[in-house]
Design a protein around this nucleic acid. Structure first.
Length: 314
DNA sequence: TGACGCGCACCAT
DNA sequence: ATGGTGCGCGTCA
């Protein structure tokens, strides 16, 4: 007999009935439900333009293998009318969170669920029904993981034409932005919500001013912080060279310092390092890839991009 | 603590 | 291509 943890979610139709129906189907498919958590309502994450979710977590027993369990779950989802894909509204979604102490990492199946440690709607209810259960990957108990989750910065993202863009918040300030995946509590706050909507506007080509957001500069060296502050005064659609920015910041012969500061910019887009270009008219580097810098400059400069960067300069 | 060496999304030669 | 440049960081005493 294997002990498993499943997470169920729904955000279409009669949500309580969907959950109950899924539990009924599971329990008649060779999965013995042991404990069912409270149902909790969770705002959508990832794509917020959809209804709230209703979630529960269950502990259960089964003799099935992980792959067989996954197939059974997918079949139940299909039978209940699930058609939509990832990050879309769905009538039912069942995830395998834990399976004994097993660690599985294949394309089709990942156990433990790769992001369950960042999800309140899993850890909170699970810490009520199985606080002492251990995560085989970290060796920590569910209760420990839940306590740690509460200390994690809030994190969200939007899909942009140049890939996902991540933002994190701590104590009402923007902690980081990034084109790379970030760890954090997968939940929106009013601040993240507002920021992501502004970013959506920005990526759709609107002129957006991000200076209303307070950035957390606490772990940033003074010189870099100063350079970032000066750079934030360079408006949308304008560009400046590394050496000019150094001069504006009062650092003589500081082009390299500026380059270093740009390469470590913790707030891409909000601190507009993409507006800093080489003195010889070339584009210069960008941590997330030069193609992204070119996209952002085209976005801001529109047609005049080709005047500022004639053929062969990038 | 402080000095030293290294590396860097640059720049002028 | 090459070497000067400022700064932060890791290392060593």
């Amino acid at each position: 007999m294997h002990k498993v943890v499943l997470s169920l979610g729904t955000n279409i139709g009669k949500k309580h009935e969907n959950i109950n129906r899924a539990l009924y189907l599971l329990s008649h498919s060779g999965i013995r439900i042991l404990k069912v958590s409270q149902k909790i309502t969770t705002p959508p994450w990832g794509n917020w333009n959809q209804p709230d979710f209703l979630n529960v977590v269950v502990t259960a027993e089964t003799t099935m293998s992980p792959v067989k369990l996954l197939r059974t779950i997918k079949e139940i989802e299909r039978n209940m009318g699930r058609t939509s894909g990832h990050m879309e509204p769905r009538i039912i979604d069942v995830d395998i969170i834990l399976f004994d102490n097993l660690i599985v990492k294949t394309d089709k199946l990942k156990i433990p669920h790769p992001s369950f440690r960042e999800r309140n709607f899993v850890l909170k209810p699970l810490s009520e029904i199985a606080p002492d259960l251990k995560d085989p990957e970290t060796g920590k108990t569910i209760l420990q993981l839940y306590r740690e989750l509460l200390l994690l910065p809030f994190m969200g993202y939007i899909d942009t034409p140049i890939g996902p863009f991540y933002v994190a918040e701590k104590d009402g300030q923007v902690l980081r932005t990034s084109f790379k995946n970030m760890r954090g509590r997968q939940e929106y706050t009013p601040l993240l919500d507002k920021l992501l909507k502004r970013l959506e506007d920005y990526f759709s080509g609107k002129k957006v001013d991000f200076t209303e957001f307070t950035l957390n500069f606490s772990m940033i060296p003074d010189t870099y912080r100063h350079i970032y502050t000066v750079l934030m005064k360079i408006p949308y659609g304008a560009v400046i060279s590394y050496s000019q920015l150094a001069e504006l910041s009062g650092i003589r012969k500081g082009a390299m310092t500026v380059g270093n500061a740009m390469s470590k910019n913790p707030f891409p887009i909000l601190v507009p390092c993409h507006r800093v270009i080489r003195k010889d008219g070339k584009i210069g580097g960008f941590s997330a890839g030069k193609d992204k810098k070119i996209f952002l400059l085209k976005l801001e400069l529109k047609d005049s991009f080709f005047n500022v960067f004639p053929k062969g300069t990038y």
